[in-house]
Write a protein that binds this DNA or RNA. Structure first.
Lengths: 258, 258
DNA sequence: TCAATGTCGATTGTCGACAATCGTCAAGCT
DNA sequence: AGCTTGACGATTGTCGACAATCGACATTGA
């Protein structure tokens, strides 16, 4: 038993530090290609050549390979062993559905949280702290939109964490890493670039906080769901514009809680 | 417009052929390390060094890197950029929960399918074909357990495909690729090595088929759920033995449909 | 004594080159 | 003509080496 160990001992996992804005190169490439796919620059089933992507991005094939595996996780590419990667063109309604599913899940989490007195109190306390951080970032330049977004995310995580349903929490948090929603989430900083939008978002979260304090489960559910619907509509509108399509109003429905 | 194009044109995605047993090297490594983690050879939070794994597996670090990303997908490792990979030790109850979640979802799918007349008829027809394949493989040597397992999987997929709930289908099929369940599924061939076990499984599927023909939703649900519970119990028992633990009987409950 | 800073070893990230594999096409055979 | 077989080109898979980065320790200064 040696107390002064030189190498990190097994069993304790180091804390992951907040990555300010330094995404790894594979992440940058993945985001870039993902954006191209979502914008419609790649058609459905179109091939993604490693060499080609490496040259356009100015790196070797190694990081590109890793980026392609990430795209496969997001459902934006299909990888066939020894045969290459193919783009998966997502229609706007599939993307809309990803938001709708999340809106439904998050709404349920908010409602369940509002029902549980002690859990709601804990969540509110943590949310206040996170929102204070976000508030302090309102006037920062557009480059720091990412920091604001992280604060908002931390606020939302408080709801999921305390809602009392482990599988809902896991589904909601996993989506950030795994599915299409994760990519959408990463594109949100573009959404938070102006102080106006930040204030708008904070107003929503203030209302959600109030609903939780008042233990108003229906208001909490509706507000959180509508906030996600709002993001959905902005994303769909901008994607439709990029693709040169007409945004389908049917996709932007606020379906009732049926 | 040139009809005789030499390179595959964009838009058409080639069919993925069934990979008989030739797993790629990264897959082999991932399976190997995954087994080691599940067996308890790696403790929770223990570090996974690329160089070290490369040497034990007799390959370079490239494939090992890819295998580690796969393990991250399965939830068996945590990757910290520039800091390495750490094993995630899964307790037996977490693994049990993965099976239970799948049992619940699959049960719902079976019940919903039994309710829909036309869909059930289509599913039954496809299942008969798949089960015929499985039946023909009963007496094959243990090395071909994988083929038998694929036939069984195809049978189950018929239920998910026609159950009428897209999100349930997606959740059930995604699990095979993404979560822990995928690893468990890959370990099932060990389970199908003897003709006895194969016959046992086919008996279950025969009963499920009969329940669907009779449109008996409760029987279909219960049978499919119990089949997954059976697999769960075998996996848990063998894992407990490998880890030198006592299998907790509480984990092997057949919870009622509440 | 304690905090800040510089240096070092270990490990991951990236690169370019080579090997293996797949799809395609052409020639040859039945 | 239709099918099989062989070789070619293109692309992915793998390798070994180098560069960049991180954590830990030693040193310095207050």
């Amino acid at each position: 038993m040696d107390g002064t160990q030189t190498t990190p001992r097994t069993g304790e996992l180091p804390r992951a530090r907040r990555r300010t804005s330094a995404l790894t190169i594979p992440e940058q490439i993945a985001n870039r290609v993902a954006a191209a796919i979502l914008n419609g620059e790649y058609r459905d089933g179109e091939r993604l050549r490693e060499q080609e992507l490496a040259e356009t991005c100015g790196v070797s094939r190694g990081p590109v390979r890793e980026a392609l595996r990430a795209l496969e996780r997001y459902g934006l590419a299909i990888l066939l062993p020894r045969r290459g990667a193919y783009a998966v063109g997502l229609s706007l309604d599939v993307i809309a559905e990803a938001f709708n599913a999340r809106a439904a899940l998050a709404g349920i989490a908010a409602r369940q949280l509002a029902r549980r007195e002690a859990a709601a109190a804990r969540a509110v306390a943590e949310m206040e702290a996170a929102l204070a951080v976000a508030t302090s970032l309102i006037e920062r330049p557009a480059e720091e939109a990412h920091a604001f977004q992280l604060a908002i995310r931390d606020t939302a995580l408080c709801i999921y964490r305390h809602c009392g349903a482990g599988h809902i929490e896991r589904a909601l948090t996993d989506q950030v890493d795994r599915s299409i929603w994760g990519l959408m989430w990463r594109s949100q900083p573009l959404d938070f670039q102006t102080p106006e939008r930040r204030r708008e978002s904070l107003a929503f979260w203030g209302a959600i906080l109030a609903a939780l304090r008042a233990r108003d489960e229906h208001a909490a559910e509706r507000l959180l769901r509508d906030d996600i619907f709002n993001t959905r509509d902005r994303v769909l509108a901008s994607l439709a514009a990029l693709r040169g399509e007409q945004p389908d109003p049917a996709l932007m429905m606020r379906e009732p809680a049926g």
